[in-house]
């Protein structure tokens, strides 16, 4: 229902807020469908990062949407055809949550039955993510890295000069906020570390940890001032961190190659398979965490430092 409101409304600011709510609701649905890791990520990303990014953009552009004079007919037709194709497709689908559905038969049981012995990780999502389909995850880090450098490419030329007053995302004149936030930041960072290293047992892992870690610094930036955060993370530091996380991930793969295994085959990292897997997963998750943290901070800084339009 929220989605409909988004479609109808014209005040972009309200739309973004609704979109954040929509993301949180989706996260709730994910939990009810047993996808805790996904819910965690959706909440952090959809309701957190995406919303912040879109809001920063709105602040730099304009809030009100103009009335569209587009013809509504063709889009509607395309959408209806697409929807119809999908509904048609669902007619033969296995019933929802049926344990006998083919999805649950072929590949998945092996993960559920053996992943714990093979990798020593009880959170199967982490095991699949960081070991069985580790190569996909490397691709995912690469995507984040790509987006990071793309944003820097696009916005770095438009950074405002130091002496220009009035930051876009600056709350540093609110003393109460400042105090509360200062109290919270250490806990956020601590929580991020917990999420990073506890991903083996509970929901979490490098990506979620990276987002939370970055959120901690973003909050710091909001209350203490963007310039302070910038002085901690200069462009070259961020670039260095972004690249090193990705390189760490690839590096693990290269080491496994040199030790005679396939790319990202962690078994060769130690004499014992489970120990090897443990090290492999630990290191690549660390790589993910570093790149994601650095990229998120870099994006936030890039967005906040753009000169405001007159």
């Amino acid at each position: 229902m929220v989605a409909i409101a988004v479609a109808v409304m014209r005040d972009l600011f309200a739309i973004v807020m609704l979109f954040g709510i929509y993301s949180l609701l989706t996260a709730g649905i994910f939990v009810s469908l047993d996808a805790v890791d996904v819910a965690f990520t959706e909440a952090a990303v959809g309701a957190g990062i995406s919303t912040i990014l879109i809001l920063s953009t709105l602040a730099l552009t304009s809030r009100e949407e103009k009335k569209s004079t587009h013809s509504r007919f063709l889009p509607l037709l395309v959408v209806l055809v697409t929807g119809a194709t999908l509904v048609y497709g669902t007619l033969d689908m296995p019933a929802f949550s049926d344990p006998q559905a083919p999805v649950h038969q072929h590949v998945a049981p092996r993960y559920l039955d053996q992943a714990q012995q093979e990798t020593g990780v009880p959170n199967i999502v982490t095991a699949v993510l960081a070991s069985y389909r580790s190569y996909d995850t490397m691709g995912e880090v690469t995507v984040i890295f790509t987006a990071g450098i793309a944003v820097m490419l696009l916005l770095s030329a438009f950074r405002h000069r130091e002496d220009e007053a009035g930051n876009l995302n600056d709350l540093s004149h609110h003393p109460v906020l400042k105090y509360v936030a200062r109290l919270m930041i250490p806990f956020i960072l601590l929580f991020a570390l917990y999420v990073q290293f506890h991903g083996d047992y509970g929901p979490g892992g490098g990506f979620q940890a990276g987002v939370i870690f970055a959120a901690g610094f973003i909050l710091y930036g909001l209350v203490v001032g963007i310039d302070k955060t910038r002085s901690m993370f200069s462009d070259s530091v961020l670039r260095w961190l972004m690249a090193s996380g990705l390189l760490l991930y690839i590096g693990v793969g290269v080491v496994t190659l040199l030790l005679g295994g396939e790319f990202l085959n962690y078994n060769v990292l130690a004499a014992d398979q489970v120990k090897g897997q443990h090290w492999g997963i630990f290191l690549v998750e660390l790589g993910v965490g570093i790149t994601v943290t650095a990229t998120m901070i870099a994006m936030f800084l890039a967005f906040s430092e753009v000169r405001r339009p007159e």
Partner: peptide, 13 residues
């Protein structure tokens, strides 16, 4: 054929 991560085909990539 090359199996990434040392996991055989339908389980690994």
């Amino acid at each position: 054929s090359y199996i990434l991560g040392g996991w055989a085909a339908p389980w690994g990539i």
